[in-house]
Design a protein around this nucleic acid. Sequence first.
DNA 1: CGTCAATGTAACTATACCGGTTACATTTAC
DNA 2: GTAAATGTAACCGGTATAGTTACATTGACG
Lengths: 148, 148
Amino acid sequence: MASSRFAVAVHTLALLARAEGQPLDSRAIAHSVNTNPVVIRRALCALARARVIRVRRGAGGGAALARAPHEITLLDIYRAVNGGAAFALHPAPQRRCPVGRSIHAVLCWVQDEIDAAVQRTLAEITLQDVVDRLQTGRRPTPTRGRKR
Amino acid sequence: MASSRFAVAVHTLALLARAEGQPLDSRAIAHSVNTNPVVIRRALCALARARVIRVRRGAGGGAALARAPHEITLLDIYRAVNGGAAFALHPAPQRRCPVGRSIHAVLCWVQDEIDAAVQRTLAEITLQDVVDRLQTGRRPTPTRGRKR
DNA sequence: CGTCAATGTAACTATACCGGTTACATTTAC
DNA sequence: GTAAATGTAACCGGTATAGTTACATTGACG
C-alpha cells in the first residue's frame, strides 16, 4: 500500500478512543480528519468487518470502539484496511531465462519477510499508546514492547 | 512505495551476480525481466548512484556488480531505488481539533518504526542469498542472519 | 578519426489507483 | 412517518508508474 487509508483509520480510532464509548458519526470524524464523510465511512466499514469497532446505523447512530484502546493493536488496524504488499512484483519475467523463471518465488519470500517484520512491529503498538502520545505530544512512559 | 522498481532491481542484480563480472547491457537484462531497456537503465542508474554496480557507457558497455554478491544487501538495493514510506500520511488534518493537531507526529513515529523494521529485515538478506535460492528453487543452507 | 554500440535522459502516452464527491437505498431512533 | 445516519455504487480528477520513442553523449575499436 501507499495510500493514506491506514493513517485515516488510526486518526479515526484515536478520536473514538477519546470519545470513551460515545458514538461519533462520520460527519464529525470527517471534520477532524478534514476529508469527506464517505471516505470515513469506507474506513469505518473495513474496521467494523474486522470487529475493531461497532457501528450503529440509522438516526443517532455512529461508531464506537468494540474493545478498550489497549486491546487494539496497530496490527489489527493494518490488517483491516490494508490490501497489498510493501512492493509489487514485476508482472511477467521471461520464463526461458533461468533467473526469470525462478525470481518470482524468491521475491515472494522477500515480501513475506518484510510483511512479517512490519506485522511484528505493529503488533506491539496499541491504540492506547497512540492516544498517550497524542495527549502529551511526547513519548510518555516507555512502552512495554519497544525495541532499539 | 508500491511500485515494482525494487523487484526489477533485485532481478537485475541477480542476473549480474550470475554473470560473474561479465558486463550485461540493458537490452539483455530487459529480455529476462521482460520489459523495456529504458526501464532497466532507469534502475541501473539508481543502482550506480548507490555504488552497488559499475556501469560502462559506450560500445561494449554494460553493468557489473561493484562488489561481491555477499557484500550487497537487499537494504542497499532498497535504499537505492526506494523513494517513499510504507504508508502515506493524510494531507491536512483539522488543526482546530486536538487529535487533528497532533496525530501527524504520532503517525510519523509509526512510519519510522515500520521503516526501521523493514530495513533491519532487508539488511540481513544478501544478494548471494537471493542467488542461492534462485538456483535450487528451495531455501539452501540456513542463512546466518535469519530469524523465526 | 570515424563508426557503431551503448548509456543517460527527456518527453509523451496509457493505465491504474486513490481521494473526493454526488446520489441513493437501507436502516433505525423517536 | 419522518429525520438522521450508514453502506455502497458511480463517477471525476489528480498522480504515479511502466512503457515507448527519440536523441545527445560517451566510449571502444578498427
